[in-house]
Design a protein around this nucleic acid. Structure first.
Lengths: 193, 193
DNA sequence: CATAATTTAACGAACGTTCGTCAGTTATAA
DNA sequence: TTATAACTGACGAACGTTCGTTAAATTATG
């Protein structure tokens, strides 16, 4: 399917250059066609962008949901650290997440509302699941007693800080070091005793 | 000075629309002149951008350095939380930080090297100061014993997570909640006992 | 099965617009 | 008077988009 090739190339250019900096002619060139031919598959640049956006959203969401569904949830230390590793893996192996991150941070101004809706949608779903898991762990006295929302927000903060490190694109070593530092302190902060 | 007005307007457009999405004609319009007149003050778009970038860098750096120089460093809990508050204040009151953040995350592709240098420069300086402070606090047994780099990285992670929250631009309440959650867990994670 | 009708996907050419930039001219002010 | 800073006018290049056309593939019809 040629549409998918176009979306793939578009994803790449949107990720590197942003919406405004990505040109249809270069995207078309990447798949061996002229920019006009893109209009046989998409209504225009906005349409192409929004379709790529929704693909990226689904990739991100399903990856995370799948992770939590596979987890037996009796070992928060392993489960949570595993989630951080998943985020790193996704970011490094999956073009979609970089795109998603850039666009959720800095969406094209004229599509801010549409993008914002999708971002909030994902955010809420992940937060809800996470909060339930934390509640379970609190009830099982596996982590310190507190309102479940507190470790949830704190953990999402760790996730965000790792994402920032990934975006900055520093060397692998620094990423490892920052991850282990954040994780160490976070785990000390929520574990019993 | 008209140059400063131009830089101010440029800052605004670069922040909202990114480098590629910001147009010189709109920037000029904002200060009541034609786009060609900008060339009486700057060599071109890149020159304007890099000057705005360096201004933003200095604003960011001097604000943070000033904060740490004013601190008596006998009370890590107050000092560190105060720094988080400073970051939030800077972001909300100071256009420069939003610009700086956007450009350090996603610089224009053809200026990636120049931007990257400035980003690393600031990063290293802040990290060095912070690490010294943490070393002092560790020596004074005010926080848990560990390599100083661990709480440093962890704290910088909290800073990053707050910045992400600011970029997302959610409501004030959610920001407050996430800040207090991250802080609570972080502080539990590095404080004694 | 063969042929006609329709759809699909690509194309070149051109649209109007905007982009960043440069050259030359006029006005302001020291 | 000289310098500075604004202007007008114009430039080539690129942008996203639309048009009409062509050739191939698919479907429908006899």
């Amino acid at each position: 399917m040629k549409s998918n090739e176009i979306k793939e190339a578009a994803l790449k250019y949107f990720t590197i250059h942003g919406y405004e900096g990505a040109s249809l002619s270069l995207i078309a060139e990447e798949v061996g066609m002229k920019k006009q031919s893109i209009y046989a598959h998409f209504k225009g640049k906005d349409d192409l962008f929004l379709q790529v956006l929704r693909d990226a959203k689904e990739t991100e969401l399903s990856s995370k949901l799948q992770y939590f569904s596979k987890v037996d949830s009796k070992n928060p230390e392993k489960d949570l650290y595993g989630f951080l590793q998943l985020v790193i893996d996704l970011f490094q192996k999956n073009e979609h997440i970089k795109f998603w991150l850039r666009m959720s941070f800095f969406p094209p101004a004229h599509l801010e509302k549409e993008v914002g809706k999708e971002v909030i949608d994902i955010e809420e779903k992940v937060q809800t699941i996470l909060e339930c898991k934390f509640q379970d762990w609190i009830n099982a006295k596996l982590i310190v007693e507190d309102a479940a929302i507190t470790p949830t927000y704190a953990f999402l903060g760790v996730v965000d800080s790792i994402l920032v490190e990934l975006v900055y694109g520093n060397d692998e070593k620094q990423l490892k070091d920052k991850l282990s530092a954040s994780w160490k302190v976070f785990w000390r902060g929520i574990s019993q005793k």
